[in-house]
Design a protein around this nucleic acid. Sequence first.
DNA 1: TTATTAATGCGACTATGTTGCAATAATAAA
DNA 2: TTTATTATTGCAACATAGTCGCATTAATAA
Lengths: 130, 130
Amino acid sequence: MQRRKTPTKEAVLKILKDSGRAMSQEGIESEINIEINRATIYRILNRFCEDGLVHKIVAEDGKQYFALCLNCSEKKHRDNHFHFRCLSCQSIECLEEPVNFSVPAGYQVTSLNCVISGVCKDCYQHTRLS
Amino acid sequence: MQRRKTPTKEAVLKILKDSGRAMSQEGIESEINIEINRATIYRILNRFCEDGLVHKIVAEDGKQYFALCLNCSEKKHRDNHFHFRCLSCQSIECLEEPVNFSVPAGYQVTSLNCVISGVCKDCYQHTRLS
DNA sequence: TTATTAATGCGACTATGTTGCAATAATAAA
DNA sequence: TTTATTATTGCAACATAGTCGCATTAATAA
């Protein structure tokens, strides 16, 4: 099944690129300048995941976020880094730091989902100033 | 607001203790030997969290899991360790290994949610044998 | 220009989790 | 022991996130 180039797909990709963050369907829909159906956005995002273009993380709010992170190569997308979720501005960003871990003998690892929650630099400074 | 000792509360606590795993509302409801309303289970679990008795983690399936892990002291519950989610038997267990990380300067950390997904030792051995 | 089929929109559906409210029951007070 | 207080529960309703079937649309190939 080969992919087709569609305006919606391009638009979603642009939003993800420009933001540099991990975004939810809701966030994408509100930022995008064309009208796209909710289900379509999910389908586009899941296709991106299948193609290794973006990676998906699930935050503590139980929602899915999709990121085309800057650290990753164009060819292969990795999700082996930490993510930081700001509880103030609600943004999720990919941190550069890779996740170091080991599992007990005999355990097979297939994926990681590591999110650090807190307040990002910008928001923390704003709260201190006000 | 002081807590009261109720049969439901005790039953949920026992299930969590006996399993030694992180469990979802669904899992608890199916294991428990008395009938408890869905909403009640959530309320009990959230109260446990408030009281620092258990910790909550959200897995890649977007569901909440609650654990009274063995490594933690009775007094203070910590969620600063990795969790392993077996995609085969669906169980989630607390790993002993603590999460080591650092965040960029100016970032404030309040909580962690780190889940490693894969196949646990038992399940992996079963697949190799069959 | 036509044929093929990937992609889309719509609606319906499932599942998870929360909340308001009246009824129940654990604990304190009399 | 009896009564009063209020934490807890069950029920129903609700909110939200995500998926899926299906007919329609529109990229791409022929």
